[in-house]
Amino acid sequence: MTDHKFDIAITGTSAFAALLALTLARRHQKHVCLIGQLPAPLQVLRDITLAVGPFSRPETLRLVASAVADLRKFLPPSVFERRDVVFVARGAEGRAATGHVRQMLMGMGVPTTLPPLGSGPRGFVAEGILALRPSAFHAGLPDWLAAAEVRVFAAVEDLQVGHDIVRFAAGHDFVSAGRILVTDGASASCLGTLPDGVVAGWRTAMLTEPVPELADKLIVDAETNGFVVGRADGRLEALAPSQKPEDAGTWLGEMLPPGTTARVIARQRFPVLLSSDGAPVVAPVAGKAAMVATGFGVGGGVLAPALAGHLAGASNSAQAGWFEARTAGKKRAAVAEIGCVGGGAP
């Protein structure tokens, strides 16, 4: 039996969680561990990270833009690529909201176009958006984490969150941490009650046989932060905002161009935490050494280093103001995002 002590334990292994752990360890000299299984080779995508998101708040878009510049210094160039991203909405309110996002992005200098009518769900194309290449990112991640001395505990037992300490067992190890930051749904039960503004939900990741019309396309459902990533061979990796296979299938059908079909050949549902107003939320858990960070969506993953700075007390005033406005509790400002149209954002 070995005892390990960490400053902070982070649950979840999304790019957001991993970047948070890396930044806390590398920049802020925190002793960090991750709780969760790193994505397996061949596992269907469960998250993507873009340099823009379906945000309606100018301060968020500005913060994301500055965070992207910061992130490019932090990771090797090979993990980035540029993609045209199609933001779509299914309902009328979502389409109105997406139109607003488009105007916001154009106001920030992001070129956009409108796809031809009848080419699929309605929305707009944001051109040349910087994105993390999932394959390159996940290939490099284990080594980066090891170099930063971030321990990964794939499976833990008896996770207990107290007033000022977190404890769990992992194999033959006993682990304690000063606090825990929960970013995923799998570990939420350790919190007992979820903080205000955070709700439990589900997402379903899917892989399909090739749909040639969507080869190399990237579609984001602005209402839910669900996405469809078309590989070069036309196979689709999709994240549906649903738990049941039939609902996930219905959603994916609505993302397809008219006249096409897709055959789902792999599928996995998993629990997530959603922010009920669709905006990023950093939520302390009352009486426990725990916080929840969720709702960052496809465009908020790049904010992980900024959040790390905020948690370490090293953020600038703009960052601090932005996070304070998005901290759950009585002082949380009206910061709802378009994700609220689709029931919340992960």
Binding site: A92, G94, E254, R263, R267
Partner: peptide, 16 residues
Amino acid sequence: EKLVSPQTLAAAEPAQ
């Protein structure tokens, strides 16, 4: 994840 029942979907207009 991989050993699931296959499911064929057709493009559809959003129900909303």
